[in-house]
């Protein structure tokens, strides 16, 4: 038996909105640690890793480890029916073939339950080693979203370069080219507005903007984003989910043939 009660139900709504474009079907894994997911996009170029820790739920009951295959578009459709202030409870029976989402309005005067069919998904789990990154850039998530959107109107790929000078986002296309440099600025009024660059070694990597733009759907989850880069490794774009965990996107770089 599984019963997970999330007071801030809007978080789950935002999580689904952030990943449903990238991944169609995925297994949600439930254990004593929390509610998690790891899934690749259909071309195996990008991966999303979600963790919502058990401590972040008001009530968390998971009698045995469970893996529930869901179509993320259908799940998003159901969660869209929850109000932004609603409490969301996820319920499932061991060995059952459905999951129930229960929505309670804050004043408890409206209670809805939506039952969704589960599906069998052959998922390929990747082992992601802990890595020391050459550079980690933390910046406002809205700024990162703006940069990806702006550059994608010029080109298809972005070169992200980190040096002592700052982090540079560059693109080239048929109509011309663009460079956006963000310097470290830790002297801003609010910490979430700061750009912080932690660099051990200069790094420069090329990525498809289409995926980066898809990752920025997670912007409503967090005021800041952290971008971890190492030469010759996939980038990690992480949005922390307050008090609960994270959504991490991994993207394989474009490399010389």
């Amino acid at each position: 038996m599984l019963e997970l009660r999330l007071v801030q139900g809007s978080l789950l709504k935002k999580v689904l909105e952030s990943i449903k474009e990238l991944v169609t079907d995925a297994n949600f894994d439930c254990s004593s640690t929390g509610f998690s997911l790891q899934a690749m996009d259909s071309s195996h170029v990008a991966l999303v890793a979600l963790l919502l820790r058990s401590e972040g739920f008001e009530h968390y009951r998971c009698d045995r480890n469970m893996s529930m295959g869901m179509n993320l578009n259908n799940m998003a459709k159901m969660l869209k029916c929850a109000g932004n202030d609603d409490i969301i409870t996820i319920k499932a029976d061991d060995g059952g073939d459905t999951v129930t989402f229960m929505f309670e309005s804050p004043t408890q005067d409206k209670i809805s339950d939506f039952e969704m069919k589960l599906m069998d998904i052959d998922s390929e789990h990747l082992g992601i080693p802990e890595a020391e990154y050459h550079a980690i850039v933390k910046m406002p998530s809205s700024e990162f979203a703006r940069i990806c959107r702006d550059l994608s109107s010029i080109g298809d790929t972005v070169v992200i370069s980190v040096t002592k000078e700052g982090v540079k986002f560059s693109t080239k296309g048929d109509i011309g080219s663009a460079n956006i440099v963000c310097r470290q600025n830790t002297s801003v009024d609010k910490p979430e507005e700061a750009t912080v660059i932690d660099m051990n070694e200069p790094v420069s990597l090329t990525f498809a903007l289409r995926y980066m733009n898809s990752f920025t759907k997670a912007t409503p989850l967090s005021n800041t984003v952290s971008i971890s880069l190492s030469n010759e490794l996939p980038v990690v774009v992480e949005y922390k989910i307050a008090e609960m965990g994270y959504v991490r996107f991994y993207l394989a770089p474009k490399i010389e043939e």
């Binding site: 195996h44 991966l47 990747l126 082992g127 991994y250 474009k254 010389e256």
Partner: peptide, 14 residues
């Protein structure tokens, strides 16, 4: 020209 790499080139399948 650069080619899009796949995640399997970096991470192992479990």
């Amino acid at each position: 020209a650069k080619k899009q790499s796949k995640l399997s080139a970096f991470f192992t399948m479990r």
